[in-house]
Amino acid sequence: MIGTALFFLFAGFAIACAVSMVYQKNPLYSAVSLVGVFVALSCIYVTLAAPFIAVVQILIYAGAIMVLVIFVIMLLNLDEDKPLTRLRYLYAVGGGLGLILLVQTMFIFYAVLRAPKDPVDTSQTAGKSLSIGQAMYTEYLLPVEIVGIMLLMAIIGGVILVRRLEPGQLKLVVDSELDKRHEEEEKDDYRIAF
């Protein structure tokens, strides 16, 4: 009974936070709402007998990824989103597409519903860090290695992307950009003149 109440509490919290994330104009508010979603989902994972994943969820998503995101938002000092000035009807189109997607996913899940109604008793093995670790390093060793290599690639890629350009290179980029804008302005002038 308490489990049911908890589930609906956390589910409601997650949905509310998700809606607020999309709705908020300020990126930092969005980020904080998203952290709320992650925490709520992690609580749901605990009720689903997956304490290890729940803790890792907090550790990786809330503790690492979102801290990075908030760090970047603070570093770049982002403004609020400006409302769309043109193509405003696209909002309605987006909403319609979302509704269709929702119906589709629900339909798929409805088709899957021949699944077992009651949870299988997993209190002994599944979800314990021991069983996850054993499965990870025996049956699924190759995927784990691939993920490791992918993370290494991400590290290298991140470092290369964010490194500062040499002054010469930077000047080139800025110059070409300025030239382009200049040309566009000239074009506009031309149009106005005639």
Binding site: L68, V72, V147, L151, G158, L161, V162
Partner: peptide
């Protein structure tokens, strides 16, 4: 793990 890698690269691109 994929999400973490994505965060590193994606935020690098954004910066």
């Amino acid at each position: 793990s994929v999400a973490a890698a994505e965060a590193a690269v994606g935020l690098g691109i954004i910066i």
